[in-house]
Design a protein around this nucleic acid. Structure first.
Length: 522
DNA sequence: TTAGGGTTAG
């Protein structure tokens, strides 16, 4: 009978596709006096949470159980741990489990509990619990521990220590360590761990390529992508998204197009992540038409899709189109709620089109209609907008009314506006502020020296140059690049190493009346 | 039943 009932319950569950079916099965079990049998309660909770995605009913079953055992705790904790918003509940349940006399944690619970830890204290305490319970030598538990340590601020040395002490490292534990180094910006160590890996799979390549892209090592990320393909590893959607981001940042349109072809051939063109990354890549590489086309073809436009398209238009100075996309986004066509990134794009669009009033309106709309507190980036955009329009009184009013300390972007934007409109008095003020924030930045020093030059204050120029020279402050040279026939040509400020430099400058002069920039000799 | 990889932002 028992065996038959088990089979019956499992079979009914497998056909169950609605909560009402599950409730019928629950009623049937209650009638038979089996509603609280641990095996059935476990199956019902798991099915409810994982297959029907109904966490509240799963919770109801769990909380109505008179004596939940380890299995029931595992099922409900697994369900809660699937959503970051429920992480606090994961830890509450875990602690309740420890307090109970009848239940002890198992190796399956720890990875979930670790994932939910908000700080190093919580991870340390779980680490101690793992040691005490004798589960430290399970590779999966160790890997989860490495991952959790590496995700909390300052936890990387602890992560490395656990990793180094592991007796059985596998492809996942290595990948976790690669990601850990990448997360703190230590690309070099991430590469070293990656090179030590006895075997690699797609997620391990992705961990390193995304690490490069997130830390600005775009060229290195692209090299790795090429190596991955060369070594006959099939990139997936995640790889492609990271590689496209790197293409966008370096202007590698040819490779970006190749990836688009690859995506198309492999049928993951409708992945929204990939679509958004393509829009961004085409936009940044100057192919606005293609960006627009890919955006139009995305059937599931999410917040990032709209933001990427707005940013493309803003980048190309097409303010009206950026605004039109925004209207579509919040109107009947999109129905998506904008976020702080949306407003950065919109404000930039207004800046590039000189739409000061419109920009002001969006800045106010952000807080009033969407409850988004302006961040320093938004203030930076607004100051840029006002500065370029020459409205310095209003710009200073905004700076003085800011709820946070103005940063380099804010002062830099103001300085830029001052240069355009010849407001040397205010420029001096802004340049001094910049130098106060970062006294060793040679670029800011040169800006201030140039302002003194404009004001004819030559003693100040000499003093400042001397200080900069003593401090050994050097300006990072400006750099731009262009891709021709699959080759990237880089040009640094005052760099004459290109064999066709005379020809290039000649052409440039004839196009824009270009004159060599006068720079301060350090 | 448990562990790893993703886009947009001056």
């Amino acid at each position: 009978m028992k065996r038959n009932l088990n089979e019956h319950v499992l079979e009914t569950l497998s056909k169950c596709n609605h909560l009402n079916h599950l409730k019928q099965l629950q009623g049937y079990l209650t009638a038979l006096g089996h509603a609280h049998t641990h095996f059935y309660a476990f199956k019902l909770i798991r099915f409810c949470a994982l297959t029907l995605s109904d966490l509240s009913y799963a919770r109801l079953i769990f909380h109505h159980h008179p004596s939940p055992n380890t299995h029931l705790f595992t099922a409900i904790i697994t369900a809660y741990a699937a959503h970051p918003a429920n992480y606090p509940s994961v830890l509450i349940l875990f602690r309740r489990m420890l307090r109970s006399q009848t239940t002890r944690p198992n190796q399956f619970i720890f990875p979930h509990a670790l994932k939910a830890c908000p700080d190093s204290c919580a991870v340390d305490s779980l680490h101690a619990q793992i040691v005490k319970s004798g589960f430290l030598f399970y590779p999966v538990v160790q890997t989860a521990l490495v991952d959790s340590y590496s995700k909390i601020s300052g936890g990387l040395p602890d992560a490395k220590k656990v990793f180094d002490e592991m007796s059985e490292r596998n492809v996942v534990s290595f990948t976790v360590m690669v990601s850990g180094f990448a997360r703190v910006g230590d690309v070099e160590s991430a590469v070293r761990v990656f090179d030590e890996m006895p075997e690699r799979d797609v997620p391990s390549w992705n961990a390193l390529i995304s690490g490069c892209a997130q830390n600005g090592a775009f060229t290195q990320g692209i090299e790795l992508f090429r190596r991955m393909v060369w070594e006959r590893n099939m990139p997936n959607g995640v790889t492609v998204v990271c590689a496209l981001s790197a293409c966008g940042h370096t202007g590698m349109l040819q490779l970006g197009r190749w990836i688009h072809g690859y995506v198309y051939k492999n049928g993951f063109v409708f992945d929204s992540f990939v679509s958004n990354a393509l829009v961004d890549m085409y936009g940044k590489c100057g192919s606005l038409g293609k960006a627009r086309k890919v955006f139009g073809m995305n059937p599931e436009k999410g917040l990032t899709s709209w933001n990427s398209m707005i940013n493309c238009f803003a980048l190309h100075g097409q303010s009206e189109s950026a605004i039109a996309i925004f209207e579509q986004m919040v109107g009947s066509g999109g129905g998506v709620r904008p976020d702080e990134v949306t407003f950065i794009g919109l404000l930039n669009a207004c800046t590039h089109g000189g739409l000061v009033e419109q920009g002001y309106r969006y800045f106010e709309m952000m807080g009033r209609e969407y409850g988004i507190e302006p961040r320093i980036e938004h203030y930076g955009c607004l100051i840029d907008l006002l500065g370029r329009a020459g409205r310095f009184d209003e710009a200073m009013e905004v700076v003085n009314g800011m709820s946070m300390e103005p940063d380099e972007v804010v002062w830099g934007s103001l300085l830029n506006g001052c240069k355009v409109h010849g407001r040397t008095d205010l420029a001096e003020f802004a340049a001094k502020k910049l130098l106060e924030i970062d006294p060793h930045n040679g670029g800011y020093g040169i800006m201030l020296a140039n302002v003194y030059g404009e004001l004819g204050q030559w003693d100040e120029v000499r003093n400042l140059r001397r200080t900069l020279k003593q401090q050994k402050s050097y300006k990072v040279p400006g750099c731009s690049w262009i891709e021709v026939d699959d080759q990237v040509h880089q040009f640094y400020s005052l760099d004459k190493s290109n064999p066709k430099i005379e020809e290039l400058y000649g052409l440039l002069e004839s196009l824009v009346g270009f004159k060599n920039e006068v720079v301060v000799d350090l």
